[in-house]
Amino acid sequence: MSLILRTATRFLLPLLLLFSLFLLLRGHNSPGGGFVGGLVAAAAFALYALAFDVATARQLLRIDPRRLIAAGLLVALGSGMAAWLARKPFMTGQWSSITLPGVGLVPLGTPLLFDLGVYLVVAGVMLTIILSLAEE
């Protein structure tokens, strides 16, 4: 493909991935979330596959997108089952907080974990579809 696209993609890929993480974390209290984040992450790799080729994109990804789906489902399931440890119904949010140096008290809960699962599943599903369609 064109040199401009390739050069631009090199810069865009890390930016898009960072942005997808931003969306994932922001989604907790504001618009955003795992679904959009996963889509943006998948779009980043799809762009890379367009600019270079599918094999390079797969190499860059390192991990089979199907594994991403499985990992995401596991994370989401785990976040739901964490409620059982506290003897609450499935998917009840569990919260704890940690103190980060410089930031202060950060509340952490299973909803974020669930969102992370969604992020991985969406990215995995999209990449499975896009990459295998592009390979045809």
Partner: peptide, 15 residues
């Protein structure tokens, strides 16, 4: 609902 999901995930990991 969860058992088949876990089974599917495990089978997916063992692709």
């Amino acid at each position: 609902i969860l058992i088949p999901l876990m089974t599917a995930v495990a089978a997916l990991l063992a692709w």
